[in-house]
Structure formats: structure tokens, C-alpha cells
Amino acid sequence: MGAPTSLKQKFLKKWIMGLQICGSSKKEMGILERKKAIKLAADVAMASTRTATTCWSRALIANASKCDENKMLVEHIMGSSQSERLSVKSACMGCNKRIRSKKILGRSKSISRVKKIAPQKILANSIAKRLVKKRTQVLKSLVPGGESMDEFSLIEETLDYILSLRTQVSVMRRLANATEHSNRK
């Protein structure tokens, strides 16, 4: 079992590393820029604590490394695990492909659905189903890389993602508190 403590430590270590890289690369930053950098570092650190095991972390890293500026940061945080990175790349390629095919499939499905549903009576059952579907779509948009998941893996990934987010939030809050405290003195 991955102990929450060790997870937090790993996250903190990586995050701080990323922040230091960010800080060293640019001297003067606006507050928004700083915020962006902090968030990016936190996200990548969080994802890298759970790399290669979960879909969302791979998607997150893939998204982060799309931008050229961030590539270096990602590489640094990912650090020694070059092989992991390679796997990430290949995985995200696969993701893209799957997204495309899913889109096509969805389009064709929606066409057929229109034909089918239009003459039918709208039942309560189908309303409920539609509600669930809508929400699933929203959830898919929230979880990184969620577009390419089916329902089951989406729920699993959401579980994982929520736990990681919690870790992230608690560590960040603690660091924020500590910083505030030190600045006050």
C-alpha cells in the first residue's frame, strides 16, 4: 500500500525541485506568471508521483509537455526516469488516436440516436440516463485524460485523482501556511 505519508513526501520533494528550477530559469515574474509556474510544478509533481500507473497522470504530463517552455521543467521533475517518459510519450500518442476514433464513433452514434429517439416516447428512464451521461461527460472533462476513458476506468481514475488532489492540496496548504508564517516574522 502506498502510504499517504511517503506519497506526500515524494510530492513535496518533486514540487520543490520544480519550483527551484522555475525560480532559477526566470528572475522577474508577474504574480500571475508565478502562480502559473507554481501550479504547473505542483501538477507535474503530482502526476510524476503516480506516473505510468494511471491514465490521468500520463495525460497531465503529456499536456504539460506540449508547451515548449514547460518541457524542460517536466523533464527535470521526471528526472532520472527517462524510460518512463518514453512510455508516457507513446501512451499519449495512443490516447490521441483513441480520442479521434472515439469522436468519429460518437458522431455516428449521435446520428443514429437522433433517428431512433425522435419517434419514441421520452421515458423517465431515458431522462435519468441522459442526466448520468451528461455528468459523466463533465467528469471526463474534469479528470485529465478523461475523454478517452470508458466509464469503469473513469471512475477508477477519478478515485485516484481525488486522492492525489487531496495530497496536493494538503501539502500546498501547509507550505503556504509555513511561508506566511515566516513572512510575518
Partner: peptide, 22 residues
């Protein structure tokens, strides 16, 4: 809400820290 918290916290950290090197 968790994602927003992350946003908020990173904003807060950015506001509190004039420089990025912690």
C-alpha cells in the same frame, strides 16, 4: 473544489513569495 483549492493555493503562494526560490 479540489482543483479550485489548488488554484487558490498556488495563487496564495505566488502572492506570498516575491521570488520563486523557496
Amino acid at each position: 473544489s479540489l482543483q479550485r483549492q489548488v488554484e487558490f493555493l498556488s495563487m496564495k503562494l505566488a502572492a506570498v513569495n516575491p521570488r520563486l526560490d523557496f
